Computed example of a mutant assay.
Amino acid sequence: MPRVRVPAVLTACAAVVGLVLTTGCSSSGDGPGQAKGGVDVVEKDKLTTCTHLPYPPFQAEQDGKVVGFDVALVDLVAKNLDVEQKILDTPFENFKTGAFLNSGECDLAAAGMTITDERKKNVDFSVPYFDATQALLTTKKSGVTALADVKSKKLKLGAQAETTGESYATGQGFDPVAFESSDAVLNGLRTGQVDAVVIDYPVVQGWLKDKANADAFALGENIETGEQYGFSVKKGNTELKAAIDKAITDARADGTYDKLYEQWIGPLPEGRS
Rank of each mutant, 00 (worst) to 15 (best):
A216T: 12
V177Y: 09
D175N: 15
D215F: 06
V204W: 02
V203D: 07
E239Y: 01
Y229D: 15
D183L: 04
E227L: 10
S181F: 02
L186F: 15
K241C: 08
A184D: 10
E227T: 02
S232G: 07
G230E: 09
N187I: 12
A243G: 00
A184C: 01
G230T: 05
T170D: 14
V185N: 13
K211T: 11
T170Y: 03
V177P: 01
V197Q: 10
K241M: 00
L219R: 04
G226Q: 10
A196I: 05
Q172W: 03
G192K: 09
G230H: 06
Q172D: 05
T225Q: 15
Q228V: 13
E180A: 07
K235N: 12
G220F: 09
A196M: 06
A242C: 03
Y168G: 11
A218H: 05
K235I: 09
Y229A: 15
N187D: 14
T225D: 15
K234V: 10
E224C: 01
L208G: 07
G192R: 05
D195R: 01
V197M: 10
V197K: 08
V197P: 09
L219N: 08
D175S: 15
T191F: 10
I223D: 12
I199P: 09
A212E: 14
D200C: 03
V177G: 06
A243S: 11
G171P: 04
A216Y: 00
Q172F: 05
G220N: 02
A243V: 01
V203L: 13
D245S: 09
N237K: 11
K241I: 00
E239P: 07
F179R: 14
P176Q: 02
F179E: 07
P202T: 11
K211Q: 13
V203W: 02
A178G: 08
E221P: 02
A242T: 12
G171A: 12
K209C: 11
D183Q: 15
K235H: 02
P202K: 07
S181L: 08
G226C: 14
G220A: 09
A196F: 05
Y229I: 05
L240K: 00
D245V: 08
Q172K: 14
D183C: 04
V185R: 03
G230Y: 02
A247F: 00
V198R: 03
A169W: 00
E227D: 15
L208Q: 06
E227V: 07
A178D: 09
P202C: 12
V194E: 06
I199N: 11
